[in-house]
Design a protein around this nucleic acid. Structure first.
Lengths: 198, 198
DNA sequence: GACGTCTGTATGCGATAACGTACAACCGTA
DNA sequence: TACGGTTGTACGTTATCGCATACAGACGTC
């Protein structure tokens, strides 16, 4: 009831982040104001944490920085995510389902990037019982199609990928890969966990 | 440059998402108001898209739904998935030195893992002017030898790697790769950023 | 030194976000 | 038909967001 002290986004941190990004792009307040349609004084106040912008203007500010608002916010939410890797991914094939994979990176605790190679038979898909379709909050996945064709289904949307294509997505959304082709597909996946607090 | 077409975040969609999440958790407006510290009428207005909440209250609403604000917003953004096609890669042309590489992952700030493929001619080494031998503090690097033989020199120590070997090390130590063999070596590298400090 | 131009910030006012209260509609019970 | 108990929403007030304008300081030019 006491409004669980929800580790909410610290809005005052966002200001520093905006300022850093703006200066990294070598933009003045007025330049950014021009780009995003928010007045320069408003930007100044936001950057100094003197006001909490509405989602509207926050989204416009993010847009002026060539970012999605969620991407902008995530930059400062990283530290709050803790890693719990109780059941680490097993190695070895699950040939019954047509999906085999091997974990390439060392199974060290605290590892931030896990590298694995998956082989999908025609018509097969990832996401078996041992391969959960959702990873821990804050994690990202980068996948490179090494051979064949692959379809990524992420949060209900479908993306077709050819050999050589690389895709990055939020791994804490429900997702899986399918092989719509008629030959084996090989997929290299990097799952980067949410950063833990130092 | 591929990446997303920058559509402005539609804040009015967020309301429907909030309502759906709230109802999925079987919470009334007052229940959620209690959880997140936002008044029920305010929640109603947000859900109906009649107002654009400030980041403060938006973050509190997300918290009441057991989400981070970036996660809540991401549900209605297309930015969750970014594809780099095979012909859209950023390449690092250092063919003169016998070291060529291409960055496979999208060039998004806030990206935690950067995936790159390096090709080393016999006798060549990484560490050119565009490829600094030291990454930011706290970063880790995972490298997979795809073809040929490679030697990793990290902090003065030397490690021999054959095709198929995978190594993980602290990328904030001075390091580079060499190709001691007589044929091209191919190296897949994942640099995972360290905790950011601003 | 005076000038034009750039930087970021303080000021005043209109618009609106956010609150507390009060209301209408729906449901199970008596 | 009443009656508490819900539900979500309309009202009126206060706090504040967000704008246009105006300002102080830094830099380079004449």
């Amino acid at each position: 009831m006491t409004t669980a002290e929800q580790t909410t986004t610290a809005p005052e941190v966002l200001g520093a982040r905006v300022r850093a990004l703006r200066e990294a792009m070598d933009l003045s307040l007025r330049d950014l104001a021009e780009r995003c349609g928010v007045s320069a004084p408003m930007l100044s106040q936001v950057e100094r944490g003197e006001t909490s912008p509405t989602l509207q203007v926050a989204a416009r500010i993010a847009g002026g920085l060539d970012l999605r608002l969620s991407q902008l916010l995530r930059l400062d939410e990283d530290g709050a995510v803790t890693i719990v890797r109780a059941d680490e991914r097993r190695t070895g094939p699950s040939s019954v389902t047509g999906h085999a994979y091997e974990i390439l990176s060392p199974p060290l605790p605290g590892q931030r990037a896990e590298l694995s190679r998956h082989t999908l038979a025609p018509g097969a898909a990832t996401g078996g019982p041992d391969d959960p379709p959702v990873h821990e909050p804050g994690s990202r996945e980068t996948a490179l199609v090494e051979a064949g064709r692959v379809a990524l289904v992420c949060d209900g949307r479908r993306f077709e990928l050819d050999a050589g294509d690389c895709v990055t997505f939020d791994a804490d959304l429900p997702h899986h890969f399918e092989n719509p082709g008629d030959r084996d597909a090989v997929l290299l996946a990097v799952v980067s966990a949410g950063l833990r607090r130092s």
